[in-house]
Computed example of a mutant assay.
Amino acid sequence: MTNTYSPIPELNLLAEFEGGVDDLYAAGFSLDDTFGRDNTFLKDPELEDRLILFAEANASGSLYVLWRVDDRADLATLPVALLGDEGGIHLVARNVREFLRFLASLEEEPCCDWEGGVGFRRSEPTPCRAEYIAWLDRHFGLAPLDDAYDSVEAALTELGKAFTTWIYPLIPEAVYSPCHELNLLWDFEENLDDDYAAGFGLAVEYGEYGYGEAPENPELADRLVPFALANSSGSLYALWRVDDRTDLATLPVVVLGGEDGIHLIARDLCEFLQFLASLEGEPWNDGGRIAFRDGEASPGREEYVAWLDRHFGLAPVDDPGAVVEAAEAELGKRFATWLTPRIGHA
């Protein structure tokens, strides 16, 4: 590899550095011999056009790719994604220089599949890591990140919505859902070992009635899209597709389940995320209204509250019941008008 390895000066310098060291310098990493090598195995013209292969990511054959998010001329400003050898494609950096910092921060090699986001696993030692860190500082004045995952999270926050919009129609299983905000929550949940909101857990399959029976009326099943468990009785949270808008995060959230009926919870998904942060007991149907069982804050609640602030600048509400009341006040009449003919009562 030479200084004309690629159209990207940063990668040309990296190729020169790699040629001058005798061992690994970043976990699982090595540049491909040919920048932008054949990617027809992706078997989709859109993917082949928009994903540029340039490096090995781990010992089992995962790859780093540049995502042509648009037709910009400066390829160094393109996001970098991980293409898993066992499936999955996930953003890891917002641009090439951030990616170089990500590499310097790796303690273990990255991995991914269709079931979750970016993870890390043990890998061979990287004897030349110190040399790489020195090279990164010398050429770009950059240092390793405090945590390699910081780069992944920053990419998800800034570019995740655009990535979801692009990838979901091509490979639905590449993301948890067509809703960016739920994808961020899925990623958070996958990296947390504790419960973080009373009674809550994202469904294994977005849009599937895995914890209960689907409504008999097909229009209900079409317009109510379940995404999470709401309580220990098997009730579900669902998005109400009130219309055909494309931004799913602006849809109202309802709770549904068997004899508990169907009730509005929040006017949109971000308000619902605040509602979750306020729960100390599970929501349930108390004679036609949403009430909350006695309980204590979940062990992962503080982490969730910090996540909510970091990604959306939002905080818990003082009273989760107030969120329900606001949804009822704004949307209750419309919801009842839509629902009553389909179930016989609201």
Rank of each mutant, 00 (worst) to 15 (best):
N217S: 09
V21L: 08
D244V: 04
V21S: 12
R241M: 11
D22P: 00
R289D: 13
L224A: 07
E208Q: 13
A93M: 07
L136A: 11
A326Q: 14
E205V: 12
R267K: 13
Y25S: 06
R50E: 08
R310T: 06
L78G: 01
F227H: 08
K161M: 09
A155G: 08
F102V: 05
L224E: 06
E153M: 08
D23N: 15
R310A: 15
V317D: 02
L47Q: 04
F292Y: 14
S123Y: 03
E86G: 04
G160P: 04
E131K: 14
H90Y: 07
P144F: 09
G321V: 14
L279N: 08
R342L: 15
A81P: 05
A326L: 13
A329E: 11
E173T: 12
A27H: 06
P125K: 10
E302Y: 01
F29L: 07
L100W: 04
T2S: 12
D247Y: 04
L224T: 06
S235R: 07
E213A: 13
E108K: 14
L269R: 04
T34I: 15
L202V: 10
G20D: 07
E107S: 15
T337R: 13
L63E: 14
L31H: 05
E158M: 09
P125L: 13
D318I: 08
W135G: 07
E216D: 15
D44K: 06
R94P: 00
